[in-house]
């Protein structure tokens, strides 16, 4: 099984520990992980802001970077959803402009092998108990793209429920957006901020020590809001929880 990590630009630059956690977790489960350095960004910020043409080279780059791998695993629901839902649209729109070929092929190549981390664990490796140990109270926020575009369902929760020492706290209004939304956070800062305030209030009401998601981009907003509020609740990517063991709690 040739598995590549698509770490995503935000994890590469701001949250390298999440990438390291995915590597450590997958290797613990017996998977050999590669990291082709040609990878960069999936193009989601550009695409979702309306810059479709600026996204095209990044989609082509993605397909090229992972050409030699059977599986691409990424610790991001929204980046996985970008590839799966929007790469085919790039091809269709380019085709409508009379230049579809390469982008359509890139989508056909990239879509079937791209998996969000929890999907890969549950659907491909068929494992929900990854042997993790994390002695903390945790609440789980299902991010919108993971929940609605990928349809992750209860996969992340199933994985968390098998973590030794972890106590999962229910989050009120869990399925409501945290207010990040990529450039939405700066284009509509007032609405984004009150959505963030409502989300963080619910998080704090759980009394959990940590809030966990499948996406660091949402945690950038949730964690940044919590930090500004002086809260002690820690934002943690699910990969870091699943990678933790009794000998090494991340």
């Amino acid at each position: 099984m040739r598995v590549a990590l698509f770490v995503t630009c935000i994890n590469d630059t701001l949250y390298p520990r999440t990438g390291r956690a995915v590597v450590s977790l997958l290797e613990r489960l017996g998977v050999e992980v590669g990291f082709p350095a040609e990878q960069s960004c999936c193009g989601q910020p550009q695409f979702n802001t309306g810059y479709r043409h600026a996204t095209e080279p990044l989609a082509l780059r993605y397909a090229r970077a992972f050409r030699d791998y059977e599986y691409v695993v990424t610790p991001s629901g929204s980046c996985a959803a970008m590839v799966r839902d929007n790469y085919p649209r790039l091809g269709q729109k380019a085709a409508a402009e009379g230049r579809g070929g390469a982008l359509t092929e890139a989508a056909a190549e990239a879509v079937p092998k791209t998996y969000e981390l929890t999907e890969f664990l549950v659907d491909v490796l068929k494992v929900t108990d990854v042997g993790a140990y994390y002695p903390h109270t945790v609440t789980y926020h299902p991010t919108c793209h993971g929940l609605r575009m990928l349809g992750l369902g209860d996969r992340p929760r199933a994985l968390l429920q098998h973590v030794k020492g972890l106590e999962l706290r229910e989050l009120a209004g869990a399925e409501e957006c945290c207010g990040f939304g990529g450039t939405f956070a700066v284009k509509n800062p007032a609405v984004s901020a009150v959505m963030g305030a409502d989300k963080t209030r619910h998080i704090q009401e759980t009394g959990a020590e940590a809030v966990c998601t499948v996406d660091n981009s949402c945690l950038l907003h949730i964690g940044g809001t919590l930090s500004r509020q002086g809260s002690t609740v820690r934002p943690v990517h699910i990969a870091e929880i699943l990678a933790s063991t009794e000998g090494n709690v991340l």
Binding site: L14, P16, R17, F35, A185, P189, A193, G223, G224, T225
Partner: peptide, 18 residues
């Protein structure tokens, strides 16, 4: 300021993943 009026930025790590 549209970002940092209500949110802190995470610290930049000493070393990128790559």
């Amino acid at each position: 300021h549209a970002w940092s009026d209500t949110r802190d930025l995470p610290p930049v790590p000493a070393e990128s993943f790559r």
